[in-house]
Computed example of a mutant assay.
Amino acid sequence: MATTRWVTDPMHSEVQFKVKHLMITTVTGYFGQFNVEVETEDEDFTKATKVLFKADVDSISTNNEQRDTHLKSADFFDAASHGQVKYEGKNFEKVGENEYKLHGDLTIRGTTKPVTVNVEFGGIVVDPYGQTKAGFTVTGKINRKDYGLMWDAVTEAGSVVVSDEIKLNCEIQLVKQ
């Protein structure tokens, strides 16, 4: 079997997270700079020998400059000391028709914990330029405090300002190399 290398198509991929604010609305954020590298046997992703995701913390955006600066500070991601978020996939498990679980290790702020994400495989196609592409929707949840993102505040009425649970939603398109 030949090893096939896949890399992110940044024009057709996005990495998004959502967090409850004041427990009444949801704030959405993105990482603008990230990369996914996958190595497979031929085009079979269940036999992936490498799944590596990295995002640059400085590229975080919630469409609010003040909040983004706070997220990059030592209260949250501490971008000055920990410039990247990293996920290293260990096992790609088929659980249904085009549905998978990706088991791996997520590192934020120098803390690494096992995380399993849900992966929906969209398929493989050849685009109009002759490039072979594979598409995935990746979803999951983490607890921010597991990674040292401990900042907390409570309103005068006792409401939590930022929830501990972070929802992940990624649309990833890979290009075969």
Rank of each mutant, 00 (worst) to 15 (best):
M1N: 07
M1F: 09
A2Q: 08
A2N: 03
V7H: 10
T8N: 04
M11G: 11
M11D: 14
H12I: 07
S13P: 04
E14W: 02
V15N: 04
V15T: 15
V15L: 11
V15Y: 01
F17K: 02
F17D: 03
K18E: 13
K18D: 10
V19E: 05
L22E: 01
T25R: 06
V27G: 07
V27K: 11
T28F: 04
T28C: 03
Y30D: 07
Y30E: 11
F31V: 08
Q33W: 03
V36G: 05
V36N: 04
V38C: 05
T40K: 05
D42M: 08
F45N: 02
T46K: 12
K47D: 04
T49S: 15
K50C: 11
V51S: 05
V51K: 01
V51L: 09
L52C: 00
K54S: 15
A55Q: 09
V57L: 11
D58Q: 12
N63R: 15
N63H: 14
E65N: 12
Q66E: 14
R67P: 06
R67W: 00
D68K: 10
T69C: 01
T69Q: 14
T69I: 12
K72H: 03
S73Q: 07
S73W: 11
A74Q: 12
F77Q: 03
A79P: 01
H82T: 00
G83K: 08
Q84T: 11
Y87R: 09
G89P: 12
G89K: 11
E93F: 00
K94L: 14
V95E: 05
V95I: 15
G96S: 12
G96E: 05
E97P: 01
N98G: 01
E99R: 14
E99Y: 06
L102G: 04
L102H: 01
H103M: 01
G104D: 06
G104I: 03
D105T: 12
T107V: 06
G110E: 03
G110N: 06
G110I: 01
T111S: 12
K113A: 08
V117H: 00
V119S: 05
V119Q: 07
V119P: 00
F121S: 07
V125I: 13
V125D: 10
D127C: 05
P128D: 00
Y129L: 14
Q131T: 10
Q131W: 10
T132E: 11
F136A: 00
V138K: 01
N143H: 02
N143Q: 11
R144C: 05
R144L: 03
R144G: 07
R144V: 03
R144M: 04
L149V: 12
T155K: 02
E156C: 04
A157S: 14
S159G: 01
V160S: 09
V161Q: 06
V162R: 03
V162M: 13
D164Y: 07
E165V: 15
K167M: 12
N169D: 14
C170L: 14
Q173C: 09
K176G: 02
K176Q: 13
Q177I: 11
